[in-house]
Amino acid sequence: MTEYERSRAMPALPEHVFDQAANVGQLESWLPDELHVHAEDPPAVTVHEDQTDQDTPAFLRPRPDQMRLEWGARHDGGYTGHLQVAGLGSGTSEVTVHLSFLDDEHDPGERAVQEALDRSLERLEEQVLLRVDNVGG
Rank of each mutant, 00 (worst) to 15 (best):
P11R: 01
L13V: 01
L13D: 15
P14D: 08
V17H: 01
V17W: 00
V17E: 05
V17P: 09
V17L: 02
F18P: 08
D19I: 01
D19A: 15
A21N: 07
A21M: 13
N23L: 09
N23V: 02
N23P: 03
V24I: 13
V24D: 01
Q26L: 05
Q26R: 14
E28M: 02
E28H: 07
W30E: 01
W30Y: 09
L31S: 04
L31W: 11
D33P: 04
V37S: 02
V37H: 05
A39W: 03
A39F: 03
E40Y: 04
P43F: 03
V45C: 06
V45S: 05
T46V: 11
V47H: 06
E49M: 11
E49S: 14
D50I: 04
D50P: 05
Q51F: 10
Q51V: 12
D55Y: 00
D55P: 12
D55T: 00
D55Q: 10
T56F: 05
P57F: 00
P57V: 11
P57E: 04
A58G: 02
A58F: 02
A58N: 07
A58T: 09
R61F: 08
P62S: 07
R63M: 14
D65M: 02
D65I: 00
M67W: 12
M67P: 00
R68K: 15
L69C: 03
L69G: 00
E70H: 06
W71G: 07
G72H: 10
A73M: 15
A73S: 14
A73G: 13
R74L: 11
H75P: 00
H75C: 02
D76H: 11
D76F: 12
G78L: 09
Y79M: 10
T80A: 13
T80L: 06
G81D: 10
H82T: 01
H82W: 13
Q84C: 00
Q84E: 11
Q84T: 14
V85R: 03
V85G: 04
V85N: 07
V85E: 03
A86C: 09
G87C: 08
G87N: 06
G87Y: 04
L88W: 03
G89V: 03
S90A: 13
S90Q: 13
G91R: 03
T92G: 05
E94Y: 06
E94C: 12
E94W: 02
V95P: 12
V95Q: 08
T96G: 07
V97W: 14
V97Y: 06
L99Y: 14
S100F: 05
S100H: 14
F101L: 04
L102V: 10
L102N: 14
D103N: 15
D103G: 13
D104P: 08
D104W: 05
D107N: 12
D107F: 08
D107Q: 08
P108E: 05
G109T: 10
G109S: 10
G109R: 15
E110P: 02
R111L: 13
R111E: 15
A112P: 04
V113C: 09
V113S: 07
Q114F: 02
Q114I: 06
E115D: 13
A116P: 02
A116K: 01
L117Q: 12
D118S: 15
D118R: 09
R119D: 10
R119Y: 08
S120R: 04
L121T: 13
E122T: 14
E122R: 11
E122C: 03
L124Y: 01
L124N: 04
E125M: 09
E125F: 01
E125D: 14
E125N: 14
Q127V: 10
Q127C: 15
V128L: 05
